[in-house]
Design a protein around this nucleic acid. Sequence first.
DNA 1: ATCACTTGCATAGCATGCTATTCAACAGGA
DNA 2: TCCTGTTGAATAGCATGCTATGCAAGTGAT
Lengths: 143, 143
Amino acid sequence: MPFSREASAGYLANHMARLFEKGLARRLVPLGLAPAQFMVLLVLWREDGLTQRDLAERLDVEQATMANTLARMERDGLITRSVDAEDRRARRNHLTERGRALEGPATEAAAAQNAAALAGLTEAERAALIAIAAKVIATMRRG
Amino acid sequence: MPFSREASAGYLANHMARLFEKGLARRLVPLGLAPAQFMVLLVLWREDGLTQRDLAERLDVEQATMANTLARMERDGLITRSVDAEDRRARRNHLTERGRALEGPATEAAAAQNAAALAGLTEAERAALIAIAAKVIATMRRG
DNA sequence: ATCACTTGCATAGCATGCTATTCAACAGGA
DNA sequence: TCCTGTTGAATAGCATGCTATGCAAGTGAT
């Protein structure tokens, strides 16, 4: 049996993710924001002042990846970083005014992208997609 | 209503795709192969001698992305590239012996990764995931 | 106190992906 | 033929992501 891209969950996940990211990137450009930066903001809007390690854990990316993303966010004026008083190895990441102000428009952009992507699905299909994807993610994180 | 990563199809797609790619990369390392190279091989095993433009279209990536991937594949001895006799702008991409020989083991690696990822799902859930993902992809490609 | 281990970050090097630009080769019409 | 517009590739520059290292700052046991 030939291996078929079209029926491979891994290939479809990759393709779907690329299209999502491209669409989100386009919607975030006017805000001066990139997709990975938006993910970090999603966390900081709820819990400001987290460390790099905290952020990497919550978004399940490697520490080195987060280090680079945070450096770009600092460069772009979205966050400031200050050495922790208790543990001088750690740096606390805080939202700037600009970073805080983007919550409304950036969230709308992301919601619009999700809506556009899921436009052809029924409510049941949307729920199924989310539930099944969450299961697959859980399986792979354990394995 | 707060925007929730956990219930965002875009976020889940990204997370799922990263985990798939990481797992596949690990399984392909012993073969000296990277995930994007495997995708190109999947196409060439069926249709050898395609141009860069052909490959980019079939995998839905930009021409520049494909140019870089093909350069790495040539460097790694997976393909050779020759100028097309009819159209001297175009270059035909041909599998090497090594590229051809990897079909079996690489396909097995990818199948194993898919199986591991979907291990927690029922047959119906697997079918649903693939069908719904394909629909979402179709929607985004049009939009 | 000292030494070994752990932990938080930074950096190097690489693969993928994108947009934008450039160049050479082709194709079609004036 | 010549000029224009299109098309196939290459390249530059950047964002994300990964692994592997290295360093400084904690921690704990002796």
